[in-house]
Each structure stands twice: as structure tokens, then as C-alpha cells.
Design a protein around this nucleic acid. Structure first.
Lengths: 171, 171, 171, 171
DNA sequence: TTTT
DNA sequence: TTTT
């Protein structure tokens, strides 16, 4: 009971497999981008237009991370609900930058699986092997290489205060 | 009916009076920052902690702009609901930057006044004069001067494609 | 901008095909029941428990009715958002009764299709024939017969004020 | 993570002081009615119309009950969020009846105080005395007397399975 | 009456 | 980078 509400609710598709990182604190964090597409009819041309918005989702809730790890993949549709947080970081040129994320943590976060694009893996499937280290590593490598494509975001990395998703793995 | 949802719902207090700008297209845009404060008990010390998150809210709905203009001020508590949009802009050093805003437009936006800090102007009051140019200008000046406090955000301003709130007025 | 909010948001499965009725006013109404299931671990036994809640959804928005008619069927998962309204009616014994529904109308309603249980008909399929009178009639007949099963609800039927879904068709 | 969502979000005013009851299990329950008012312009006459919807809110979360007890009164504006549950009961004539409530329990419930009508007691005030037994009793009596006004609801009361709010106190 |  |  705080007198405030800070909530984002999204239904969209994952742009890539969730990336899971181990923090120095022993916690894990999962992160992924989520696409929401709005479409409308252009007033003049009457053409159908569409625009995709990309959101960064960060999950600190260990229960949800387990679900993401086992059942959620690139392209899947999910509903997520969390808090909006804007994080400050410093880019390689030393400029302060800000990134806004939807953060799911504790009881503030919710995630509902809404199906795979191909109808498979609707959550009823067997969990993916927990020993998919190769995939994990590959994902992280690719993500680092692709960093500029997700908004020029390159976290400074390093000390504990800096334990942020979407960046280099600290373990 | 699109299969997607993109929604942020906030209850918080305005960081400053809404700033209203005239676009070259003839439309108006209102913008303000909104503070949501979360508080919790620190596990170790047991101390009450709190953290304020600042959100940028942008309103394109003319009906809501009229309400903001007449009844909503710095410090007031409101509920807003809109879409998350991340906007790209170029700072003075030529760097690409990204800012995420809560955008209220058309039927995607909602605003509910929840009272002033001092109990006055709970919406029943008479509208503020529509000719408060002085205040407006002052607000904008202050906002620009205070830019660093709201995230170091300094939009590039200029051409039509650049019609962004929180920046210099184009009229 | 009203100072009030009245909203229900549900993600669940349809208990039956949407039932569409023609009102005397020329409007159409669609209605269906939606199941949401919560599950939890029993504190004592440790057993997994579950409980299903049934909701009545009523749709007055002609655009959404078209979508329901063409693409949404029994068992499908949908997200709906609308207003809570409690409607008074008189049962056959002359007792006043009250039924609470989630009402989607105008811009207050939202419906997102989230897939069929079998992976088919994910909205990409061709629309069902608009001339499925047989099915429609059958549905309505079945629904009337089954009235007691949905809560003993039997609307009084008749005059214009009484144009309510889940009851006998007036056309 | 269940694949379902069942949520009602309301911003409205309390129809009476919250009523708090002690269950045989030792738990407490708080309940109150909440009014949400929608207003619109009539298409024909152009007159401003309004309609008030009354909702029953039931709170099982002890933390929120403490807040309600100390700070929330008749007429206050609050935001509540909870699950929709339809409860079956038997009226004095032996008829089965159904009542839909917004239930706040555990982490599924949220309550935000949004101010008193008179600007007082905005949460900053000192808590009401915890020994206001008189008021409590009075409230309950009034509520029972006023039963018809809140929908003719008269719960059967009695055994443990029947521990329902808005009814006679069992202690 | 649905679904997992 | 997703999906329809």
C-alpha cells in the first residue's frame, strides 16, 4: 500500500531466446526483448500500416527464470508485467546513457506463456535440457556482438553496482 | 484486436507543471514527468528504504491536453495510462540516443486526476486562465535549464520529423 | 477523464462458442463464458490444487463481434478487457436477481486472440462462413436449455429495456 | 505463471466505512462497496448522463485490513485490484444466489489510498483509534439494515463454509 | 462449459 | 530481433 503504481503490461513476441546471466551475488537474471506491433489504417492512403516497438524485459524472479529457461524461446508469445525502471550507464565514450526496462522481480512480476508461433512447445512439452551450455554461451556471444543493434547499448560492466542484464556475463 | 498489448499504468505525482507545445502540424502535445516512489524494508538493516522512479509522459490527445492545461499542476497526483514508445534522437555531440516515454494518444490514453497535494484544485476548481503565456514560457525555460535532472536529455530539435516533446518549442 | 476506473482484465478459455444475438435496436451482442483457472500448492497436503472461475463476457462492439463470429471458438484462449456491470433481472419465481458481467463496448473493450487449444485456427485461418445459421441456432437452443447450469439465470425477456445477452433471442 | 489472468482494477469511492469481521479460523476479512461513476453525453439530447456502478470488495490480506481499519473511510477514493470471484449462497427462501466480488488476498491484491473527499486524512493523519468498537458495531448494523440498497443481498450465514463477508459477524 |  |  504505497500510493503509487508503476506497471507495464505487454503481450508480444520474444526477439530472441531469453539470456540468463549469473550475478556475483549468486542471483540470476534473465533478459530478452519483446516486440509489440500496432497496426492501423493510414487516413490518407487507406493502407494498412504497422509499427513494431521493442521492449527490454529483465527478470529477477528465480521462479520465472526457471520457466523462461525451460519453456520460453525466441518467437514465443508471452504476457509480461513488471515495473518500469530507467537505468543509467556510461558508454565507451564516457557518455551517460539511460535505458528503460520492464523489470519483473519478487511479487511485482508476472509472466504468462501464450504459445509458440508454430503451435509446438505450448508449455506442455518436456523442459529443455538444463545443460544447454553451448546454446547459452552462443547466445551470450551473439548478444555481445550484436550490442549496437539493440540501441547502441554497451554497459560499462565491472563492479557490483553494475550487475546489469544485456551486458557481458560476470561469471 | 491485434494480438498485442503495450501498456503502462502509473499513479504518481507530477514533477512540474505540464508543458504544452504547438506542433507545426497544428497539433498540440503536452508532456510532464511523473514520479512513482516504491518503498520497502531493507533486509539487513530493517530500515525503510525508498526509491523514486521518474517517467516521461507525453500526451497527444487534445481532450486530455485541455484537462492538463486547466486542472493539473506540479505535485498533483494522477493516474496515466498509455503506450510505451522508445524514441531515437541525436544529441549535440552527434550521438544517437534513446528515450522511452509513456505516450497517450487517441483512445490508447487515459488520465485520471487524483488530487493536489494541498487538497485544493481537486478538479472542481475553476480552470486556470488559458492566457498564462508567462507561466508557460517560464516553465519551458526552467525545464530546459533543469534538463540534466531529468536524465541529461537534450533533443536535437529542428525539422518536422523532430517534433518531440521536452524540447524547444517550434512555434 | 472521469476520476474513476472500472476495468476487468481476463486471460482464459471460452466455455462455448460465442453466442450472437440480434437486438430489436438493430445492434448485435455477443456473449460467452470465460474460464480462468488458478492453481496453488495446498499448505498441509502439498498437493497441487486448482479452482476455475467462470466469467460472463458481453460484447457490444460490432468490430469485436465480427472477430468473435469469424475466428473465436469454444476452448480458445483470449484476453478480454472491459467494464464490470451488475445487471438486475427477475427470475421466473419473481425474485430479483443480480448478475455481474464483463462488458466490452465502444472504446472500453479490448479482445486479443491468444490461440486455439489445438494450435489450429490461430487467427490466420480463413474466416468461418458467415452463413452458419445452423450452428448459431443450435448454439442458442443449447444455451437456453442449459440456462440453469450457468447459475440459474433466466432473464425475464421482453421489452426493450430487457435486451440482455445470455437469454432468449428476440429476432 | 499459470496461463491465466483474473484481475479487476477499480478506482472509486467507498460507499461506507470498511466492515471488518473475525472469522472462526482466526483470520479477519474486510469488505466494503465501491462506487465507480461513468459519465457520457447522450447522443440525442446532448445531456450529460451518468451512471454509478457498485462493486463489492473483499479483503483477506491482513496488511491491507490494517490500513483499511486505520485510514480508510466512507467516501474516500481508493484504487483496488483483485480477483473476480463469484460466490454461491442460499437466500432465506432457499434459493441459490450468486454474488460476484473483487477479492484481494495474498499477493493478488493491491490497495492505494487516493484521498478523502474533504482533503483530510490523506494517509498522513494519525490512525483512528483501534478501539472504535462502537463505530464498528454501528457500521455492521447499518449495513445489514441497508442490505436491500446493495443488491438485496442477504447471505445465509452460519457454518464455517459460509464465512462470507457482507453478512452477520460470527464472533 | 474451457484449459493445463 | 519477433510476430501477423
Amino acid at each position: 500500500m504505497a500510493g503509487y503504481m508503476n506497471r507495464a503490461t505487454l503481450i508480444g513476441n520474444l526477439g530472441q531466446d531469453p539470456e540468463i546471466r549469473n550475478m556475483q551475488s549468486g542471483e540470476r537474471v534473465a533478459s530478452f526483448t519483446l516486440a509489440t506491433t500496432e497496426s492501423w489504417k493510414d487516413k490518407r492512403s487507406g493502407d494498412r500500416q504497422e509499427r513494431t516497438e521493442w521492449h527490454r524485459v529483465v527478470v529477477w524472479n528465480e521462479g520465472l527464470i526457471g520457466v523462461l529457461e525451460d519453456y520460453v524461446h525466441k518467437g514465443d508469445k508471452v504476457m509480461v508485467e513488471g515495473m518500469l525502471k530507467t537505468r543509467k550507464w556510461v558508454d565507451q565514450a564516457g557518455n551517460e546513457r539511460y535505458t528503460t526496462e520492464i523489470v519483473l522481480s519478487g511479487f511485482n512480476g508476472q509472466l504468462i506463456m501464450l504459445g509458440s508461433p508454430n503451435g509446438a512447445a505450448r508449455g506442455e512439452g518436456e523442459p529443455a535440457s538444463r545443460t544447454r551450455t553451448g546454446t547459452q554461451t552462443q547466445t551470450q556471444t551473439r548478444t555481445q556482438a550484436a550490442a549496437p543493434s539493440d540501441g547502441g547499448y554497451t554497459p560499462s560492466g565491472g563492479d557490483l553496482d553494475d550487475e546489469i542484464p544485456f551486458g557481458p556475463c560476470v561469471d
